[in-house]
Design a protein around this nucleic acid. Structure first.
Lengths: 143, 143
DNA sequence: CTGTATCCACTGCGATACTG
DNA sequence: CAGTATCGCAGTGGATACAG
């Protein structure tokens, strides 16, 4: 922590007394939760621009998400969605049609995390080539 | 790659070569790799401002990191550091003192990811209270 | 369509012991 | 100091079957 801290920064630090560097801190578990492939992809999917381009974030059905996140198992999708709902990052809406229709949507909190996760996903895609090259070079090193 | 590719398909492939939504895409695995608690914390530690405040990113010894990331096992720390080194996100420097001194430092690529991961870590710490409240509310719902 | 429930294979990860 | 090697289990996550 820098010694040159403004009063505002000190207040912020005092208010949010959470530190993920500490093993027992709840934020450490939260960090573990959100540091997840499926969390990132779900938030990325739900936060993508709606077809009409009018909203930031779209509403998606369970089956839509299932198709979008290629290869996700039912268990992981449901489990991750529940977790996100419990944490207040997404809302789950059930429409009593026959058969039932369930839609998921980002909350404001979820949207704020989406902005970060979208960057992470984009980073992975943008730097894939360089990383593949780095790996090749590393693996080519003589032992 | 099939030779019978439409011009539109070629353009799409060229523009977005990688897509984490696809199960077979290498970027999916990369996303899984970097979506990791220890990756986040290591990058956060190495990217924090140096004591002299002159550099973005500092050099840290193995034992320093071990202390900073409270509760990390030797295995996970070494394993994660190796992975980051192989991907070209950090450098590992051995100084042949007695006993040997090993320091780790972010590369430019690592620094770029650090900026994102630092935000994720900060988000977790900043929104911990709200999320705890959301969980309490969710758990209070009648079944 | 949108789940829940169950079983189980796999492996991530910690603990422990040892080394240059 | 900075690792490597090995063991063992707990828990993750996939596959499958079933249900409202």
């Amino acid at each position: 922590m820098p010694t040159t801290m403004t009063a505002a920064q000190r207040r912020a630090a005092a208010k949010a007394a959470y530190d993920s560097f500490l093993a027992e801190c709840p934020s450490r578990r939260l960090l573990d939760r959100i540091s997840d492939k499926w969390v990132t992809l779900i938030l990325a999917a739900l936060g993508s621009e709606a077809p009409d381009g009018e909203r930031a974030g779209r509403s998606m059905r369970y089956s839509e998400l299932s198709r979008r996140l290629a290869g996700v198992s039912q268990k992981m999708l449901t489990q991750t969605l529940r977790s996100l709902e419990r944490d207040g990052l997404i809302t789950r809406t059930v429409t009593p049609t026959v058969p039932v229709t369930v839609t998921y949507e980002l909350t404001g909190l979820g949207l704020s995390l989406h902005h970060l996760m979208r960057g992470v996903k984009a980073w992975a895609e943008a730097n894939m080539d360089e990383i593949l090259a780095n790996r090749a070079e590393y693996d080519a090193q003589p032992a």
